[in-house]
Design a protein around this nucleic acid. Structure first.
Lengths: 113, 113
DNA sequence: ACGCTATAGGTAGCGTGCCTACATATCATC
DNA sequence: GATGATATGTAGGCACGCTACCTATAGCGT
């Protein structure tokens, strides 16, 4: 998939994978890969800043922990995050149906000749 | 619909409305409104630069004409534009199925209480 | 005569936000 | 001790849609 395609929808995707339970950043990237059948392979430079953005917006809350000597920052969906996710889903439904409608091929009158 | 949502998909939308036949910029905006049931109300400052971009990329070709004393620039899909449209449709199909898959609510195991 | 709206085209500059590239550190494997 | 997986992060670039303007004609109302 072309890079940049997720623009404007990344937040919703992250919130969606966090719905099933808290995850740390690296695991979020893997979860997105898994759920998309490998199509979504987001670089850390995309996801980590997004998580900080979501945390600033109070849609997720982050907490440090140490697992196997490695630092982890585990993110949990907040109540506001849950509402935001519902909103994102509704917006996506509308958006995708609009694009579907516009993109759908019309029956083209057969060319003369 | 939230502004900026069409980002990355605008070109495809414009190519799609041009598939049925040549249109000038203003008519393209109206066609997008019509096909989307009013949901897409793109400002001229979005569409006109996009058309010039598409013309530079040789996906559409523009031609001036005068209708009722007003200047019009009518855009026609080129062969390359038709290919690009097919590509955009394929990309959209993949992208939207990926987002659907990730966004789709999982059955959440009932919380222990 | 004047203003308003619809029609028609356009530019300048901004901000968002994803990407590339890089930096850092631990642990396991070879 | 080098490599790769795991894990987190920053800096800078840039594409692109948006806001806010500007210009011009035609038609209508007052």
């Amino acid at each position: 998939m072309k890079p940049d395609a997720v623009r404007g929808h990344l937040d919703g995707l992250i919130l969606a994978v966090l719905e099933s339970g808290p995850l740390h950043g690296y695991a979020i990237i893997e979860a997105l890969q898994a759920r998309s059948g490998g199509a979504l392979d987001l670089p850390t430079g995309t996801v980590y800043p997004a998580l900080r953005r979501l945390e600033r917006a109070a849609l997720v809350s982050g907490a440090w922990s140490t697992v196997g000597g490695r630092q982890r920052r585990t993110y949990t969906l907040t109540r506001a995050g849950r509402h935001a996710l519902a909103r994102q889903r509704a917006e996506w439904a509308e958006f995708s149906s609009v694009v579907d409608a516009v993109l759908r091929p019309r029956t083209i009158p057969e060319a003369a000749s």
